[in-house]
Structures are given as C-alpha cells and as structure tokens.
Write a protein that binds this DNA or RNA. Structure first.
Lengths: 253, 253
DNA sequence: CGCGGTGTTGACAGGCTTCAAGCTGTGTGG
DNA sequence: CCACACAGCTTGAAGCCTGTCAACACCGCG
C-alpha cells in the first residue's frame, strides 16, 4: 500500500510558499518564519490512487501526512468484517495525527479519489512544539475541530432518523467541500457510494438506498454514476435541522 | 449556574505540587518547571454540587476548568428538548477546552456528583504554547485522546445492538474510573441514571430499562438506587467485543 | 401529604434489517 | 466482438428490534 511513498518522497515538488491551498480564503496566512519552518519539516510528496489504503488500523508508519488534493475517509473495521466510517478527509486535513501523538493507529484511512499528500516525519513532530508556538497551537486547534465534527456525528447517530442522517451527511460534506472551494474545479459531486453512506450512518445498504431515493424524490439530491450531486443544500440542512458552522479562517500545516 | 466561582476562585486551596491527582500512577509526573508554570496559570478552585451546569451550550465564560474530583458529562440539547450525551468528564479532564481553542461553546457540561474544579483564565491559555512545549504537547495529546474515545462511541452507535451498547458504555466508564483509582474511595458504582444511559446510547428509556435488566439477569451489573454497580467487568467487555485501551501514563494540567 | 424524578411493565406500531433476486454499467480476456 | 465477472444500485417480502403510549410502583423531599 502506497508504494509511491518510497519513490516520490525524496523530491519536494511544490514549495510550501506556492502551496495551492494557500490561495484559498478559508485557510489562514502564514508568516515567513512559519513558512520556512513547514518547508524544513516537509519531507516530500506522494500520490495515491482512488481506493488506496494510506494508513491501516494496527500498523504504524514513520510518516505523517497532510492532504493537498482529493477525498478520503477514516474508518474502523470490526472482527466480523463490518466497518464504521468515522469521518472524511479533505484537503488541509492531517492523516495520521492521532497515531503521531499517541502510540499506534486505531483506524484506517482510505482514498476515495486520487489524492496528493505532503509527507512529514513523525520523529520530527515534536520540533513543532519546541520551535513554533503558533503552529503548535494550530495543531491543537485542528484536533479540537475534529472533536467538534465527531460530536455532531454522534448527535446524528444518536438522535436522527435515517432520512435526517442522510440529509445531514450530504449537507455536511457539501459544506466542507464548498468551504475549500472544491466545487468549481473537478466536479460538483461527492465521491460517495451508497455502501459508504450506509457504513457512515450505521444503516443497511438496502435502507440507505430507499432513503436516498426519498431525498431524490424531494428534489434535494441526485444520484449519478459518479456519486452524489447536491441539488438543494439549504433543503438538506433544513431537513436535518443542521446549521452549517460559521465561517472561520482555519489553519493548516 | 456555578455561583461559587466568584467567591472561591480567589483562594488557591491546593498547591499544584500537592494535587491529589499527582499521586495517581496513571498520571505522568511533572518537573519543577512545569509545576511552577501550572501553579502560575491556575486562578483558583471551585466546587459544584451534583446537577450543576458548569458550562452551557452557546454561552461563553472567561474560564477554563480541570476536574479534580467528581463525575460529569458533556451533552448537546436539540430544539425539541432531547439531548445527546457526548462523553463523560472525570478527574484529570478539561472542561471547556474546545471553547477555549475555538470561539464559543457548542455543548454543555453538567455534574453527576459534587465536583471540585481548578479554574484557569482562557486569556492566558496561549501562554502555555509560548512557554511550555511539553505542556502544549500534553494538551494536544489530551485532545487526541478525546478524539479516540469519540471514535469508539461512534462505532458503538453505528454498529452495536442495544445490549452491546449498554455493555460497552458501562465497561468503558468502569475502566476509566478504575484507571484513576476512583473505586476504593467514594463508592464502587457509576453515578448514572437510566435516562442518562438512554441519552448516551441513542435509545429510549423504556428499552434501556429492559436492556439493563437483561444485563442484570446475566449477572454482569446490578442496578441500585445510587446508580449502576459493575459485577463482571470482563463479561461486559466480552459482550461488547471491546478491549480496554492499553494502560498509558497520561498527562494532565 | 402530595409531588416530581426514577424505575418498571405491557401492548402495539413502525422503522430498519435481512434475505433474496435482478438490474445496470464497466472492465477484462478470449 | 462477445462472454463473463464484478461492483454498485434497485426492489420485494418477512420479521425483529426498538420506539411510543400508558399506567403504576417506589422514593426522597418540601
């Protein structure tokens, strides 16, 4: 898995100062010192095809990643083969932060599309805390943000009906993609399968299918061969009784 | 809510060096410098009765807390009045960390028993990152730990049956209490109500009641007027197919 | 004493799962 | 070019798990 790592990580293709993410409004600006630090911290880049397992449950790699482009998801697999999706991974997110902070990895991460990643060495991670208080704070901020998202997800699983859960999930992913301006460029759909939606929401595929059909009949989404197209984001939010989080300028490494 | 704050926070009763939590094996030792820093950061202490709302959703206080003694829980309330419990708060945990890092509070925290808290000022929070890389790292570690717990909780809600969920929740809380040596002293039971269990697991009270009864019939727990008494922790873990996390020396502030 | 919070139990309905089969589109190899 | 496999989507029918409604017992407390 991720054979490309070895071959590509020697070469730093993109200079951090020219990182495409830096142009996006949602991400905060770095000063020169921070930029220089991240550049020295970065080991290289790698590309993963759709369907690649970047990190798998139980294993450990010496690397920590950040996502430059592409979609992925975090999940756990049970002994009986079932899996539970925990959250989705988009540009600007860390991959492997939990494992870097603690001992080993307790979940897997898999790509949904081609994904470009920046590669860092875990060993050097602690340098951030020693040398850059602002970046150290950013990392804590990012962890707290993930915590909030998981809180919301728990509310979804605990209190919402199947229809509301589906609406929430799609609205949530749509909003995240919109925030980082993902839609103008590649395509305006979410790269999901119904099996994935089911594994995220704790539903069976059969019932997920019927539920998504209801959303489509109401004119809120359209299900295409490429995944899920959002037709009426506001309608989804209203159905799920969910209000999108307020816009904040967020950090990334 | 928490009227005591104003009156008690001037006086620092307990010196951080003599903090009772420091005697517990599960918590890591601080060096002199760290101790000194925490002492300078701490504003005072406060005590909250059982059933007190320490922080409530949407509001904002200038304070950040850590728990010295007692039980509490984090939850969100919906517009229709229902609530979803997100996690439980025990000695060594932060209260209000999310809100300190980000803008406002998106959940409430309420006590289940009398609780003693240490009080810190949010404004000074960033000083940790500037002055103590090790403590800054600890905070990030604590955030990552919370993330893991929430991951597990999502697995529970998404994949487990009512019986397994109940078993998991009780085993999880039992393990947390055991780790910090909470059982020898006050009482060997978890201060839960069935309504609370229901709100944690996304079940109705009625069904929670029947499910807990099954656990009792199997000789795994006993439900007393004071809450839930764990009879067979291993049995609960096995039923939930859950393995307690490996023991690690954890930080606290 | 009455009241509210908590636990308990029964009956019934319904949301969701499971099993099972068929459909579509895509890719692969003969 | 067709045959075939395969993955994802679709649909029907049967049944269980869980929610809802309703009533009652228990207990501590003002």
């Amino acid at each position: 898995m991720l054979k490309e790592t070895a071959s590509t990580q020697k070469v730093t293709k993109t200079n951090c100062a020219d990182c495409p993410l830096r142009a996006i409004d949602a991400f905060r600006d770095f000063d020169k010192k921070e930029l220089e630090f991240v550049r020295s911290f970065k080991r290289g880049e790698t590309v993963a095809d759709a369907g690649t397992t970047i990190i798998s449950q139980g294993s450990s790699t010496p690397f920590l990643y950040t996502v430059m482009t592409g979609w992925g998801f975090r999940y756990k697999t049970m002994e009986d083969g079932r899996r539970q999706v925990l959250n989705y991974v988009l540009p600007g997110d860390f991959v492997g932060l939990q494992a870097t902070l603690m001992h080993d990895m307790e979940h897997s991460v898999e790509t949904l599309s081609t994904m470009e990643l920046c590669v860092f060495e875990r060993e050097q991670f602690y340098r951030i805390f020693e040398q850059s208080p602002t970046l150290a704070f950013d990392i804590t901020w990012i962890a707290a943000r993930e915590e909030r998202i998981l809180d919301e997800h728990i509310v979804s699983l605990g209190t919402r009906t199947a229809l509301e859960r589906c609406a929430y999930l799609i609205a949530y992913l749509h909003d995240r993609a919109r925030q980082i301006q993902l839609f103008p460029r590649p395509a305006k759909h979410l790269p999901l399968t119904q099996q994935l939606v089911a594994d995220t929401l704790g539903l069976s595929v059969v019932h997920t299918n019927r539920t998504l059909k209801k959303l489509a009949h109401r004119g809120l989404v359209r299900w295409t061969s490429a995944g899920c197209e959002v037709v009426d984001a506001r309608g989804l939010e209203k159905l799920a009784e969910w209000s999108r989080p307020q816009e904040v300028c967020r950090p990334f490494i």
